[in-house]
Amino acid sequence: MQERPFCFSIGPLLPYSMSDSNTTDFSNPSTFILLGIPGLEAAHVWISIPFCTMYTIAILGNFTILFIVKMEPSLHGPMYYFLCMLAVTDLVESTSIVPKMLSIFWFNSREIDFSSCLTQLYFIHCFSAMESGIFVAMALDRYVAICNPLRHSTILTNSIVAKIGLAMMLRSSLLALPYPFLVRQWPYCRTNVIPQPYCAHIAVVKLACADIRVSSYYGLFVLFCVLGLDAIFIALSYTQILRAIFSLPTKDARVKTFGTCISHLCAILAFYIPSLFFSLMYRFGQNVPLHFHVLIANVYLLMPPVLNPIIYGVRTKQIRDKLLRLFTHKGT
């Protein structure tokens, strides 16, 4: 019996098996078939409602963040520039997934051609890694603002912020670039059916009739380079931040200073906790039905784009005040 390689990748990892009835003799498919939520096809229209709502909230929320930062000169600073980068990342990531998903739910449009699948796969993994990198940049901003406040404006200049953003973009783009090439090199002679509503790296290479250990090991490497190193850097930053906060002389000063980190911490938790939960469920939830795995994977990808603008809109006073002025038509 051939040993099945253990697979790692950024993004959802879905366990599944295909019946012999789905096998075929093609070597390189021109299209893949996305099943949506396997086993819940009859409820696809109802399932589409919460996902369409989440996508609408993500689009409106992130565009609102971009609009407010652009229109409010007092928000033209490093923290809000990084927030704009996060908003753009969330918009691209959610848009690379949800429209095709809704077309499956509403119109049963399950086919996706090979090149489109590779493009979607690249965008999902690239912008997931980019989001993690932006959280690191935000942690750096909070570290400088709290541990070295007098030099914050001279250290994090607009030029430095732009270079950090470019570095995060290049890192995620280069790390995600091998994924479509790895997918393209394998022969596909079993099936072209992907039991989920989008193309992800491991979900596609599992269909290959070849030894995919290279893909598995590269996924592990990216997982360590992105989520592992980013989490370590964020933890180290907040260790220094907490030391600086606890050294402040009064309780009010400590509470006020820590309050400037709450939005960032909440956004980090909204990104990493679903990832941890999904990883644990994947490893220890073999008896969990496939449709539940797929639903959780979709929520895992859509939750940060939905929650990030809500978190920053509610917790950031400058953004909240600007929103209130917009809704009450009180200009300043």
Rank of each mutant, 00 (worst) to 15 (best):
E3D: 14
P5K: 05
F8A: 08
L13C: 03
L13I: 13
M18P: 10
S19G: 15
D20Y: 10
S21Q: 06
T24D: 12
F26T: 07
N28F: 03
S30Y: 15
T31D: 15
L35T: 06
G36V: 11
G39R: 10
A42E: 07
W46C: 11
I49F: 02
C52L: 14
T56G: 14
I59S: 07
L60D: 09
E72T: 05
E72P: 01
E72L: 05
P78D: 14
L83Y: 11
T89H: 05
D90S: 07
E93H: 03
S94K: 00
S94E: 12
S94V: 08
S96I: 00
I97F: 05
P99Y: 05
K100W: 02
I104L: 01
R110T: 14
T119I: 03
I124D: 15
F127T: 07
M130E: 10
M130K: 01
S132G: 14
L140V: 01
R142Q: 10
C147T: 00
N148S: 08
R151Q: 15
T154Y: 01
S159N: 06
I160N: 07
V161G: 02
G165S: 07
L166M: 02
S173R: 01
L174I: 13
A176L: 03
P180G: 13
F181M: 02
L182I: 06
Q185L: 04
P187I: 04
Y188H: 09
T191I: 11
I194H: 02
P195C: 11
P195W: 13
A200S: 09
I202P: 03
I202V: 14
L207W: 09
Y217W: 09
F221C: 04
L223Q: 06
C225S: 06
V226I: 01
D230G: 07
D230R: 00
L236R: 00
Y238T: 02
I241L: 11
I241R: 00
A244E: 09
F246S: 13
D252P: 00
D252F: 02
A253M: 11
F258V: 03
G259A: 09
C261P: 04
C266T: 14
I268C: 11
L269R: 04
F271T: 14
I273S: 11
F277G: 12
H293S: 09
I296D: 15
Y300G: 12
P304D: 15
P304W: 12
P304N: 12
G313E: 09
R315P: 00
T316L: 12
K322P: 01
L323F: 12
H329G: 15
K330W: 13
G331R: 00
